[in-house]
């Protein structure tokens, strides 16, 4: 269970997020520029909120000025819209980057399972530059999964793909949702995508996600 109640200033806009997310897909749905990515960045720990609190499975990740767990200790998988695969590493090394940093007893996801789930076997020896956009996105998802996260953040994983590629990735996302029992926060501005994947939809309008606190 993820509980978020934070706000931050971005230029003129105050971005406020107040919601809970349980196992399954929770969509943050809104126009581009509404602040969706900033909300993911605050949850992941790469943007520091001005106020508020974030807890994940009872552990406080952020509490105003007192607690700010750095991203590498949050156990959160983050799939970026622009994928951010390491260009100097093979697909295989990209996939194992986080896995190898993880203590043995925390490795809940195994490489063979993730490679099978996302059909990555034929790509392992290649460099990211030699992959299609859809293939890169599958590797990015696999790389995040192999950190055995307690929460998965996905930022518009289909936005930069054409409709044929979207059709190629969507079944993988459904498989992921149905096999990995994790809370997934899925950011999108595409209504059909959200309807197809998400159990819960939280609208993001002008920087405000979810109901405002009392």
């Amino acid at each position: 269970m993820l509980e978020v109640n934070v706000s931050v200033m971005r230029g003129e806009l105050t971005i406020t997020a107040s919601f809970k997310a349980d196992t399954g897909v929770t969509a943050l749905f809104g126009h581009s520029g509404a602040g969706k990515t900033t909300i993911l960045n605050m949850i992941a720990g790469v943007v520091k909120p001005r106020t508020g609190k974030i807890t994940l499975n009872g552990t406080t990740l952020f509490d105003a000025q007192r607690i700010n767990v750095p991203p590498e200790h949050r156990r959160i998988g983050y799939v970026f819209q622009d994928r951010r695969l390491f260009p100097h590493l093979s697909v295989h090394s990209n996939l194992l980057y986080g896995f190898n940093l993880l203590a043995q007893n925390l490795r809940a996801q195994q490489p063979d399972d993730v490679i099978a789930l996302l059909d990555l076997a034929p790509l392992l020896a290649r460099k990211p530059a030699n992959l299609s956009g859809g293939e890169q996105q599958r590797v990015a998802i696999g790389r995040a999964l192999l950190t055995s996260p307690q929460l998965l953040l996905m930022d518009e994983p289909l936005a930069s793909l054409d409709s044929a590629r979207k059709g190629e990735i969507l079944p993988y996302l459904e498989r992921l949702r149905d096999t990995i029992r994790l809370p997934i926060i899925y950011v999108s501005h595409d209504e059909r995508e959200v309807q197809r994947l998400a159990a819960v939809t939280i609208p993001v309008v002008d920087g405000v996600a979810g109901p405002l606190g009392p």
Partner: peptide, 22 residues
């Protein structure tokens, strides 16, 4: 690209490991 360093952090690498591996 600074965003690659950010990605390394979310994958569990601390600042030093991020520097030496990315």
């Amino acid at each position: 690209d600074h965003r690659l360093e950010m990605a390394a952090r979310t994958l569990g690498a601390g600042p030093w490991r991020t520097f030496f591996s990315v």
